[in-house]
Design a protein around this nucleic acid. Structure first.
Length: 115
DNA sequence: TTTCTGACACTAG
DNA sequence: CCTAGTGCCAGAA
């Protein structure tokens, strides 16, 4: 199909006029079930460069839990999970079929780049 | 303004 | 696998 539709969330994630948290959360909302993105990947998607994974992490720690977005689909680049939520995150990911080995998500198989 | 700290990333050892 | 050191960005003290 012609797919001219960028998708409201996708558009929101790229809109530089919106607040940082809204853009990051919009991006996280785009991640399909069973797939994941690293903080660095989100930085690349939202900011256009991979240099601000910590800005992404800060937004997640502040506004993600309870916001309704699938925060558990954002993990470290090496496939491990952030310390504060590691346990619940691994449980949720395993629940939706994300391949995990030794407490690490198999990035090669579950990583989502936004396509 | 300097320093510390954090749901990060990467390289060395 | 683990610890250090460095780079990174931003908020808090």
């Amino acid at each position: 199909m012609a797919t001219g539709t960028a998708g409201p969330l996708r558009q929101q994630a790229l809109d530089e006029g919106l607040p940082l948290s809204e853009r990051v959360l919009a991006c996280v909302d785009l991640i399909p079930p069973g797939r994941v993105m690293s903080y660095k990947d989100v930085s690349e998607f939202v900011f256009g460069h991979p240099r601000s994974p910590r800005r992404v992490a800060r937004v997640l720690s502040r506004d993600s839990v309870g916001s309704g977005v699938p925060w558990w689909r954002v993990i470290r680049a090496d496939g491990s999970c952030a310390t504060p939520v590691r346990s619940e995150q691994l449980r949720r990911l395993a629940e939706e079929g994300v391949p995990i080995r030794n407490e690490h998500v198999v990035m090669a198989a579950a990583r989502w780049d936004g396509r």
